[in-house]
Amino acid sequence: MNKQISALFDRIGGVYALPIILMVIALPLVGSFPTWVTLTVAGLGMGMMIFLMASGLSLVFGLMDVLNFGHSAFISFGAFIAATVLAALAVWVGADNWMLNLLALTAAVGAAMLFGLVAGWAFEAVIVKPVYSDHLRQILITIGALIVADQLVLVIWGGIPISVPKPAFLQGSFIIGDVSIEIYRSFAFLVGTIVFTLLYLVLNRTRLGLLIRAGVENREMVEALGFRIGRLFVLVFVVGSALAAMGGAMWGGYQGLISGELGSQVMILVFIVVIIGGLGSIEGSLLGALLVGLLGNYVAFIFPKLSLASNMLLMMVILLWRPYGLKPAIKR
């Protein structure tokens, strides 16, 4: 890049400015301001849901170089478990009382996350631990586990798509003048922001976070300083799995209708986000997720035919510019 442009780029915030730049470029292309607002909020909400699913995967890879293709199973299970809980709590879900709605939603997302914690812990111990530092086996065994998990979804919930009841308080849109903003996506954005903030604080303000950031850079040195990286990794894996299940639960509610392919479909986006964001950094995952969410929504409106290709193009452009992603955890 030209020196002046790159100096200007750094002054306006560097890679952190990219989502804003994308929004500004999209405005004239979309043409109508109200539509642009709707698309932008939709993109941010979608981005935050993808962030939930991507952050854990990125840290897991960053910390232990573990390639976990089974990650998408936690997304699928999260979505189906939440849908099941919401269906069972149909009375609360549909009640004209936002507290009951919220309670039902909390129960559903909580159940998904609990599953993520427990299953993540078992998955790490049984599937991942035996193949630390062996990429080929990791790929084979986690894909194998994914196939089994996807079949389990079919056995438990059947092959027919099931609908996800949406809590009453999250239905519909805010209408401000000409602008219509979907409530569910705004809510997803809020939840994602809270989770990101919590993760950020833990990583940057606690000793545990310090250890994780150090471990992402140099595992051996963390051990040579007297800490067990293995225990740290189990913790990160378990939290990452719970967040994936949470993301899946939110994503299911946003789709309204979910099928067994949900996990593998979003997983493509999740991988793109982790790669363009830079491995091992949650700031990178957030940036990548917002870019993917925004671009997906703008392109679907402006050039619907490019929808599928747009994220691949984004990934290619970013990797040509920054081969290690936007915000890699390791300074090279």
């Binding site: 950031r213 150090a214 850079e217 140099n218 040195m221 300074k331």
Partner: peptide, 9 residues
């Protein structure tokens, strides 16, 4: 030998 510094910290 490579000092094992955590550059991001």
């Amino acid at each position: 030998e490579n000092m094992g510094i955590f550059g991001g910290l």
